[in-house]
Design a protein around this nucleic acid. Structure first.
Lengths: 128, 128
DNA sequence: CGGTATCCTAGGAGATACTG
DNA sequence: CAGTATCTCCTAGGATACCG
């Protein structure tokens, strides 16, 4: 009943990635998800069609492609342009916010590419 | 038999995040995993003990903490210093490579914090 | 072509209990 | 304190089939 503002449960908190259930964690998980990351990076190279993305993100299933694109669209990171023609044509591109984000993601991917060999190589140090 | 170097199967490929099964994807997934990301960012603030990390990464289970730290250590991103005392004390810190990486991750977290409110707010645009 | 709907399983992830 | 071991649950994610 008392105004226990200090020891109150951290309902949502202003913003701290470290707090469970905070929005930033959710967002972070969307954009750093396996396919989210890849699609954002792919789209950083420009607008692309569904089928192109599917080929680009090697190994992705149609389900995950649709699902991930929807999440990213919902998050306002990706924009979807459908044309009512036969056969259908749908293009996906980054929004401004998406571009802002991908600018952060691309260096990350570059880092991974540069360090991957080295990192994985050291995994089995039990070489003959 | 012929030197089909051009159309050869992409066994592992030099490095392309887009190719399934390539090392960079694996590394990227370690590093952008829910807890991996959080721990790397937490450690970017300096060496920390197990118990500190556990409290910091709100919601993490002991299992996931141990597992994630091991992966990061194996990847050469985190270093573990154990002291043979009672009670035990173990400190974790970033390696040089880990620091290099966290420099990329921190801005990402910052971006998430800044944009999260806005992004999540727009989720239920079907307001009454 | 660009999806959606359905089914199904591998393993990511939490809870608990125990140990050095 | 800093883990490990085990058990279970849940859902992310793949395969397939079908629709506009």
């Amino acid at each position: 009943m008392a105004v226990s503002t200090s020891s109150a449960t951290p309902v949502i908190a202003t913003d701290d990635v470290f707090l469970a259930g905070c929005p930033s964690r959710t967002v972070l998980e969307h954009v750093t998800s396996k396919w989210g990351l890849l699609l954002l990076i792919a789209l950083s190279e420009g607008e692309q069609r569904w089928s192109t993305l599917r080929r680009r993100a090697d190994g992705i299933s149609e389900k995950m492609l649709a699902q991930t694109l929807k999440t990213l669209e919902r998050d306002g990171l990706v924009s979807r342009q459908a044309q009512a023609i036969i056969p259908p044509r749908v293009d996906y591109s980054l929004t401004d916010r998406g571009h802002e984000l991908s600018a952060l993601l691309v260096p990350l991917a570059a880092w991974a590419i540069q360090n991957a060999q080295d990192i994985i190589a050291g995994q089995n140090s039990t070489a003959t």
